[in-house]
Design a protein around this nucleic acid. Structure first.
Lengths: 144, 144
DNA sequence: ATTATAAAGGACAATAATATCTTTTATTAA
DNA sequence: TTAATAAAAGATATTATTGTCCTTTATAAT
């Protein structure tokens, strides 16, 4: 479904969002331990996410990563996925055809339509703050 | 969604199925031209599919690839995907966690459940003969 | 000012996926 | 039985993804 980068990225974002709800900035080390991901690789992913204004960061002592409250309310999973995997998951053809649409469909086109729509709807309607709140319930986990 | 191998494989299978409906065996060259895929790479994929009894093949002059009528009625897209991409698409966690289930779910687990179910249903309930028949309508294409 | 901390950035390494090339085996027809 | 055809198999090459390491920049505290 998603690339490794995107999987780590989503897990990192959810963890950071949860912590930001408590006004806590988190370091790279803390993040990669919390989501059980390779640290240096996670750093690269976080760089992409900060460049694209998904997460914010501050250097130096007491620095770390966090997400603005305003951003948490606005941003959804779709925004994160788009930064890390592009929007192929929405627009791409299931059989890998460059041109595949209602007028010139692949044999699976219409069979994929509502699955893709459902996925799109879910990703676009799940905001980061919703996930951060869910995490407070202590029933969801982000590692192993 | 699927790997390149799986995309090529699905397109090849659909093309072979369509031709088998007309009792025509097709050569590797014909297939890779029909679905616009790299020939040698497609050969490797077809080897996997023959080893796993999705397609049949005969060597030598007038040889080629085909699918038994019985197999076309029995086999579905899920069988093809399983051979080429494994069953990660059904069982795998959206966030890449090794353990993710109802009891110990990732934050997206329940949001993914019905999308995954829909996909699974579609792949399991689309037989090769259905696709072969669809192709006769001349509205679906397999390249570009 | 100096030191410690932590992210950013650049260069490099390992692995997996994609793709090609060559040889071998099976089958058919002349 | 020889030549031609076509898939199977093995070896190798290329590219993308995943992953690590080292240096630089920014910030805070002493």
């Amino acid at each position: 479904m998603f690339s490794k980068s995107c999987e780590y990225g989503l897990r990192a974002v959810i963890f950071i969002a949860q912590q930001s709800l408590l006004d806590t900035k988190v370091s790279l080390t803390t993040i990669s331990e919390a989501i059980d991901s390779p640290q240096a690789f996670t750093a690269k992913i976080l760089q992409q996410l900060t460049r694209n204004n998904i997460v914010s960061s501050i250097k130096g002592p007491h620095g770390g990563f966090y997400i603005e409250m305003e951003a948490m309310k606005t941003l959804n999973l779709s925004a994160v996925v788009k930064v890390l995997d592009g929007d192929d998951i929405y627009t791409g053809c299931g059989l890998g055809l460059k041109q595949c649409n209602e007028d010139k469909p692949c044999p699976l086109h219409f069979k994929f339509v509502d699955i893709r729509e459902k996925l799109k709807y879910m990703l676009e309607n799940t905001t980061l703050i919703m996930l951060a709140n869910d995490m407070e319930l202590d029933v969801f986990h982000l590692k192993t």
